[in-house]
Design a protein around this nucleic acid. Structure first.
Lengths: 208, 208, 208, 208
DNA sequence: TATGAATGAGGCTTCATTCAT
DNA sequence: TATGAATGAAGCCTCATTCAT
């Protein structure tokens, strides 16, 4: 079997096992067995348990970000539509590739520095993508003649963090509401965030 | 040293170590050493690694929920003020006890059933607290004569998930913006969420 | 509570626990707790786990040998009646004090040298008692004018070993036949052994 | 080294160590070291300390019973000759494999349920073999026209217990009389038991 | 006499990793 | 390319034993 194919096959299995057991509780033994090969092969192809996990992480992160980007790009120039499409793609991806998402997100602590770095990097990539769309939206709002509420790049970043965190947390909610479609969830979230942001941009301010 | 005091001291250390390393990577050895006692003491007082983690979980969840509740209660009857106060207390708590929050929130997979149950329970307690305030807010909106947008309990739960996820993610943002006070963050988040929700309640709907 | 009484009370509990769990699996903790005192007291009175076990061993061995001897003595001068009475007392003792017997007999391996020595000593005491009765019986046979089959002291010892081993093993049989009285068992065993020995003494020899 | 050979080698060592120290006092460390391999190998091949002990138990029980059966079978049809041959094989086996016998017989208490079950099973196999020969002997006696003394299967079982117990105990005696051959011991024991049984079958009864 | 608090030592088990083939 | 055999290191847990009071 050619090298690349074997590698992908191992990673396929590893994503499943890491998602199910977590990094530490997963054992290379189990992964090798499920992949139908011997342990030394795993080490030959992926170097170490850490290397194997990194490979999983990178492949899945790439897939997720790509899904987001493609959807956003195909949605046209309007930032709100692009954000909507990206979020929608995100929820659809998580719904369809639960294991990928678990590996990407639910392994925050307990990882070596190099792994934690890769996780952070993946998160940062997502965040940048989102923040950029938010920033475009803010600027568009300004362009539309709405009185500025002094929202700038830092605010875009703030909102991006809030939005990504919200989306992340909503994947849990999604799990306990299997009747809700990713599309519906996206719509609700957009309503929560975008309507408010529009009004805040328009100068409406909430104060205690 | 009297029994209860020792126990608390052990839990103090354990929260730090579990937060830093994660459940599996944390070793009872390290916890005992940092606590300045021998390993058998840990087992005498907390029974097992699992028991120790559960004790951490329960104590920190109780503290966090209590902080939220006290602040909300003291803020008077208006749900938006109570939510604001609760969120503010949450950010202050997390800012001061980052480790507690990590232990409560970042331990999704790889845990035994009994621990996973306790984590879920702690998370549910936090979520219920928030959802209850949101629900009050929604009902107040209705009471004020605003036309219903058919928002119900499920929506409160949805918003609570989004809000808690956003808050959680914002604790990362907070870390990279040390000049921002918890109070300021709270205000921004309230503006993001509450203004939007008010308008959605009023019938404003965003559609792609 | 006076010292001696406490000691006996501890030994009472210890015999139960040692019988139930075996020497290694028994824990001083459990013994102390069941005795209703603190662990240091056990060490104050009996020095160590080994000391505690030795105390159990000695007390129970003494009781068992005493039961045998008293019964044999009271049965008059005829060796066969004395042996019968002694065996009967043995089976009655084991039936009534199962734990004592387990402690005395079922701890052969896994014990330190000093304990193994004490066990061996106890067994030797029993064996000597029996061998002496057998020897008397043999000599009586001779005295009665029966033609010697060249049976001597070594044979008495041989028969004593066989007899004690048989009796020991029959305590298992007894357990699975609760309807059989110790007296009945004794009678059967006497018939097995004594009748054969009489005939062997009389010159009857079995050869393959 | 091929897998099966290693396994047997480990069991060889383990039988020695378990016999010397008893189940609890034996340490897997010592067994691995004496076998000249690392501890993980022991676990790879035998699963656990318990699994290791069970393997010892089963192999030795099988060997002992086989030795007894083969000898008995080859001794022809007469039950007394078969019993004699079987006992002779037993003493020879124990003389040569003292450790095997200790493992089989001296591990009464303190064992987990599954082990205790296996010990009981092994013991039952030995006992059944002996009881079967005794039973044959009793029936043959009846066939020969000897007046029945109402001896039945239960009696065969009783005698088997006594005989096995006697034999067991005589292995101790054997150790302190190295000049006595297993064959000689067997002969003496047969004389003790068989002559008596014959007469008991013939109606001779001993009464106090 | 009595105990609550504490520990050194050691046992079972598992795992990531490598060597020889 | 592929693997069966093997291990160093480390983790969880328990226990006999002692000190300070």
């Amino acid at each position: 079997m050619p090298r690349h194919e074997r590698e992908q096959q191992i990673i396929d299995v590893a994503v499943r096992v890491f998602a199910k057991r977590g990094y530490h509780a997963a054992s290379v033994d189990e992964i090798a067995e499920l992949a139908g090969i011997s342990k030394p092969m795993v080490y030959l192809y992926l170097d170490s348990k850490e290397g194997l996990f990194l490979a999983c992480l990178r492949r899945e992160a790439e897939r997720l970000v790509a899904a987001f980007q493609v959807a956003a790009r195909d949605a046209g120039p309007a930032p709100e539509l692009r954000l909507h499409a990206g979020l929608s793609a995100f929820f659809a991806f998580v719904a369809e590739h639960r294991d990928s998402w678990v590996v990407l997100h639910r392994q925050a602590s307990e990882l070596s520095e190099v792994i934690a770095g890769a996780v952070a990097e993946a998160r940062r990539a997502v965040m940048a993508e989102v923040a950029s769309l938010i920033g475009d939206g803010i600027r568009d709002g300004l362009a539309d003649g709405i009185r500025s509420a002094q929202l700038g790049d830092e605010d875009a970043d703030f909102v991006a963090h809030a939005l990504v965190g919200a989306a992340d947390s909503l994947t849990d909610w999604m799990e306990s509401h299997p009747d809700q479609s990713p599309e519906g969830i996206t719509l609700r979230l957009m309503n929560m965030v975008w309507v408010g942001m529009r009004d805040v941009l328009a100068g409406e301010v909430w104060l205690p």
